[in-house]
């Protein structure tokens, strides 16, 4: 297991918004096929960390190594990096003026220059995979939240990323719609996708995660396998956090 490729490695990552020091010396390694779940209180920096990984936010300091190559935001083409690192947002961010299928084929055709017929074929396969083949030609406004999020997952997958980031993908959903999104994500994990997931769904973390990272105030305070971290948290702050949410 230790010989698996390091898909993401960050060293001493620091991020500030003005005077606000949001990420403090964060280290993290995510290996191929791993599912990492990030937990922590609101404002602890989980989204910021995720967003630094695909350079929606630019770090102030530290190293970000994606698939064994350090990325320099000033000299590397970040669009190329983002093609390999897909992201799913809390509020879906589907393109409302495009149909479901158009949402999915937009980036492959416009960014990779994929032939449209091929993109449509692959797009339909992806929609089938997330259980929405019959919704290909409707607009996002006609979908439920759970369906929207599954389209967003298909849209990200259409770029054939090596890594997928999820920022609270079920937090905006009605409780009865959470399951369908989580099972899509579980399926993805089973297929070997490398995933970093910010979530409050502890059940998902226990069942799917290889590693759980607990963040507090901009630092990774504790890392462990889910059964260890949830059952025997070593740090006081992790214990307090877990007892506050369970």
């Amino acid at each position: 297991m230790s010989d698996k490729r390091e898909m993401i490695k960050i060293e001493k990552l620091n991020k500030k918004f003005g005077d606000l020091h949001v990420l403090k010396d964060v280290d993290m390694v995510v290996k191929e096929n791993d599912v990492v779940v990030l937990i922590g209180a609101s404002g602890s920096g989980k989204s910021t960390l995720l967003r630094c990984l695909n350079f929606l936010e630019i770090k102030n300091d530290g190293k970000i190594i994606i698939e064994e190559k350090e990325i320099n935001p000033k000299s590397d083409n970040l669009n190329k990096v983002r093609e390999r690192v897909g992201m799913v947002f809390q509020h879906f961010n589907l393109f409302p003026h495009k149909t479901v299928l158009e949402n999915v084929i937009e980036a492959p055709t416009m960014v990779k220059g994929m032939n449209k017929a091929k993109a449509i074929q692959e797009g339909k396969e992806l929609l089938d995979k997330v259980g929405l083949a019959d919704k290909a030609n409707v607009y996002p406004s006609k979908l439920s939240g759970g369906q929207k999020q599954r389209v967003a997952i298909a849209r990200a997958l259409a770029m054939k990323p090596d890594i997928m980031l999820f920022d609270e993908p079920t937090s905006a959903l009605d409780p009865e719609l959470v399951g369908e999104v989580l099972s899509t994500m579980k399926q993805l994990a089973k297929e070997g996708m490398t995933m970093v997931v910010v979530t409050h769904e502890m059940g998902f973390a226990k069942e799917v995660a290889d590693w759980v990272f607990y963040m507090h105030d901009g630092r990774i305070v504790e890392v462990g396998h889910p059964q260890d971290l949830f059952n025997n948290p070593k740090e006081k702050r992790t214990q307090d956090f877990l007892s506050s949410i369970l």
Binding site: N54, N79, G86, F89, H91, V111, M159
Partner: peptide
């Protein structure tokens, strides 16, 4: 919504491409 630009960017689209394909059509409407 600024999530639209972020979604485009997260898919590897450039700012200009996202502007042209995603933001402007909605803004024009």
């Amino acid at each position: 919504d600024k999530g639209q630009m972020e979604a485009g960017r997260s898919l590897g689209m450039t700012t200009a491409l996202t502007m042209r394909r995603i933001i402007l059509p909605q803004a024009f409407r």
